[in-house]
Structures are given as C-alpha cells and as structure tokens.
Amino acid sequence: MTIIHFQFLSAILFSLGLYGVLARRSAVLILMSIELMLNAVNINLIGFVAFRGFGQEIQTFGQVLIIFVITIAAAELALAIAIILRIYRNKNSVNVDEMNILKG
C-alpha cells in the first residue's frame, strides 16, 4: 500500500466513470458514473494527503478539500435529478440521445 497503488486505483475508477458517461444512454446512469469519477478524485486526493502531506496543516487541508468536493457533489446531484425528473415529465424518457431541444 503505497501512493502508487492509490494513484492506480483512482485512475482505474476514473476511466470506468468516463466509460460510463460516454457509453451509457440513460441520464441517471450518466449521473452515477459522474459520482464514480468524483469518488476517484477523492481517492487520489486522500492518497496524496496521507502519503505526501507534510505536517498537520496540509493533511487537514486535504480533508477540508474532500469535504467541499463531497458537498458540491451532493448539491450537483440534487439539481441534476430535479432536471432529469422535469425532462422525464415532459418527454417521458431519460434517454440522452433524445434530449435535443436546444438543437438549432
């Protein structure tokens, strides 16, 4: 268990999230993949902080950053699910291929 293991884990999780965002067509699953990517970022951050954070200040600062990331992820998810429900009510579908109202 060194910093490199955490970097690898973070890279793999982020790539899986990227694949989910690009390959799946349900808007809810795209949101879930975005949450995966945010978790990968958090793993990366906590790995750096625990293995390379010199002193208490930096270690705690990393944890503060992760708390903000988690909070903003929660806010983003709430708004995105509200938007998805609204679109579902209007179009009766959450398929992202059919969301082309803004297309000129």
């Binding site: 799946r24 349900s26 809810v28 879930m32 949450e35 998810l77 699910i81 579902y88 398929n95």
Partner: peptide, 16 residues
C-alpha cells in the same frame, strides 16, 4: 445520494 438515485430510477422507470 444512493437513496436519491434509487428514487430517480424508480420514478423514471425505463428499460435501457
């Protein structure tokens, strides 16, 4: 977040 996601799935039930 997981409860929110499960609610969203149940409300927009649709087979992919």
């Amino acid at each position: 977040i997981s409860v929110l996601i499960i609610f969203a799935i149940l409300m927009t039930r649709e087979i992919e």
